[in-house]
Simulated scan of single mutants.
Amino acid sequence: MADHSEEACKRVDVSITRVFELLGKRWTGPIISVLMERAVYFAELRRAIPGISERMLSDRLTELGTAGLVVREVDEGPPLRVAYRLTAAGAAMEPALKELSLWAESYLRESAEKGC
């Protein structure tokens, strides 16, 4: 029998909640996926993620930077260019993200095929 008490509801894993509050936002996954490969200039990153606006990309990169997962690096140029790369903490997500990708291929295949 399921436990529906108030105390049971308070036992939600705080770490998982924090992860999904950050990574569950739209566009965050694709941004991290692109940055897993290498450091990327802002314009390249925007081109790599169809449909994302400059404002949204900037906002997500700021959030990821605040969380300590992404670093902003300015190349003085000319021209002035800004690149982003994952920190050690951001890069450490790679094994977990690969596992999620495998899971999605196995269990979300029907949904993904419908979107094509």
Rank of each mutant, 00 (worst) to 15 (best):
D59P: 00
V40E: 05
W27D: 06
S58Q: 13
K25C: 00
V82P: 10
G68V: 04
E63A: 11
V14L: 11
V71T: 13
S106R: 14
I16H: 13
L80P: 05
I49T: 00
A39Y: 07
R38P: 05
K10M: 09
G77I: 01
P79Y: 07
Y107W: 15
E94Q: 15
V34E: 09
A83P: 08
K98A: 13
W103N: 15
R38W: 04
A88C: 01
Y41L: 01
R38Y: 06
F20Q: 05
W103M: 14
K114A: 11
R38Q: 11
L102T: 14
I49G: 00
R85F: 09
L23G: 07
Y84E: 11
P50K: 01
E54K: 04
S106Q: 14
L45W: 06
G90S: 11
A48M: 00
A96V: 03
L23C: 08
R109Q: 12
L80Q: 11
M93T: 13
G65C: 12
A88T: 09
E99H: 12
G29L: 02
R18T: 06
L102I: 12
V70I: 12
R72N: 05
S58M: 12
I16V: 15
V74W: 01
E44S: 03
C9E: 14
A88D: 12
D3K: 02
S15T: 10
Y41F: 07
E76L: 02
L69T: 07
V74N: 06
S106D: 14
P50T: 00
W27N: 05
R26H: 03
W27F: 09
G115T: 03
G77R: 04
A91R: 14
E6P: 01
A48V: 00
A89S: 15
A8P: 08
W103D: 15
L45C: 07
E37M: 10
G77K: 03
S5M: 08
L45R: 04
T28I: 09
R55W: 01
A39E: 13
E6H: 06
G65L: 09
E110P: 05
A2F: 08
A96H: 05
Y84K: 10
W103T: 14
E99D: 14
E76S: 04
V71E: 15
L61A: 11
R18P: 01
M56P: 01
E7R: 11
P78S: 12
M1I: 14
T66K: 02
A96L: 03
L35R: 04
F42L: 05
T17K: 09
S15P: 01
V34A: 07
S101R: 15
L108E: 08
K25F: 00
A104G: 09
